[in-house]
Amino acid sequence: MSLTVDDVNKIAYLARLGIDAQDTESYAQDLSGMLDLVAQMSAVNTDDVTPMAHPLDQAQRLRPDQVIETNNREAFQAIAPQVEAGLYLVPKVIE
């Protein structure tokens, strides 16, 4: 499996991850190497195997739908890059 520079750019956009243009080629090589390593899995027939998500096959726990936490907005927003009137600020999304 070999990924091209275009593939890397496409994946990087999906991940919203900036990559320097001069590094794209080396990412393409590293990723192709990782996919070659991973390709060893295809040699094994796993048709009747159930995928394993939790080592102890535990299901997600449910809890009663009750308020259990207090509002910590001020503490959480104290470490935010930019807030105003209790809101997180980002560049304008809707014109």
């Binding site: 990087a12 919203r16 990559i19 996919l35 999304v93």
Partner: peptide, 27 residues
């Protein structure tokens, strides 16, 4: 814009190994 904020914040702050794994995982 918002995309630029995501892309550059993540691009400038993550190191090479983290980026490699994010890319493989995203793929």
């Amino acid at each position: 814009d918002l995309n630029d904020l995501y892309i550059r914040s993540r691009g400038e702050a993550f190191g090479t190994e983290v980026k490699r794994r994010i890319l493989v995982g995203t793929y």
